[in-house]
Computed example of a mutant assay.
Amino acid sequence: MEEYLFEDIDELARSSKLIDATFNTSVMGLRARCLIDPEAAAIETWESAVNALQMGSALFAVAGAGEGTVECRINHKLRTIPAPGCRLVAGAGAWLTSFWLALICRDQPRLTQLSQIPLEQLHSPQALADEYLHHWIDTLQTWWLRGPALADKLIATIETSDPSVARVAPLDMLQGVLDPPINLFYHYLRRDQDGFTPALADALKLHRAYWTLNEDRAADINGTIALGPLAIACLAHDAGFPLGIESDYLPKHLLQRTWIGEFPT
Rank of each mutant, 00 (worst) to 15 (best):
Y210L: 02
F196S: 01
R190A: 15
D179M: 15
H207T: 04
Y186Q: 08
A209T: 08
P198S: 12
R217N: 02
H207M: 10
D194Q: 15
Q175C: 09
L174R: 07
N214D: 08
D216I: 12
D216W: 09
D179L: 14
I182E: 05
D192F: 11
T212M: 02
A201R: 09
L184N: 03
N222G: 08
D216E: 12
T212C: 02
T212G: 01
G176Y: 09
I221N: 01
A201D: 05
A201F: 14
Y210I: 01
R208M: 04
R191M: 14
W211D: 00
K205P: 00
H207K: 04
W211E: 00
I221R: 05
D179I: 11
Q193F: 15
A203R: 01
Q175A: 13
Y188A: 03
I221F: 10
N214E: 06
A199I: 10
H207E: 04
A201Y: 10
H187M: 07
F185N: 00
D194L: 13
A209F: 14
N214T: 02
D220I: 07
D179T: 14
W211C: 01
E215T: 12
G223S: 04
A219D: 02
A201Q: 11
H187N: 03
F185T: 00
A199G: 08
L178D: 03
D220V: 06
P180W: 15
V177G: 01
A201V: 15
L189K: 02
H187K: 09
D194E: 15
A201E: 09
D192V: 11
A209Q: 12
D216S: 10
L189W: 05
F196T: 04
R190I: 09
P198T: 14
Y188N: 03
T197E: 11
V177H: 11
L189C: 04
G223D: 02
K205D: 07
Q175T: 07
L200R: 02
A201I: 15
E215L: 11
A218W: 07
G176P: 02
D192E: 12
T212S: 05
P198W: 15
I182M: 10
R217W: 03
L206G: 02
R217I: 05
N183S: 12
F185G: 00
D202N: 10
T197K: 11
R208P: 00
T212P: 01
L213V: 05
H187T: 04
P198Y: 15
R191C: 10
L189Y: 03
P198H: 15
L200Y: 04
T212W: 04
R217P: 01
A218F: 07
Q175G: 08
K205T: 08
L213S: 06
R191H: 08
P180I: 15
L184K: 06
L213C: 10
W211Q: 00
L206V: 04
I221V: 12
Q175V: 06
H187E: 04
M173H: 09
A218M: 06
N222E: 10
G176I: 06
A218L: 06
G223L: 03
N183L: 11
R190E: 11
Y186W: 14
D216N: 10
A218Q: 08
L189H: 02
R217Q: 02
D216R: 12
G176D: 05
R190Q: 13
R217H: 06
L174A: 03
N214K: 08
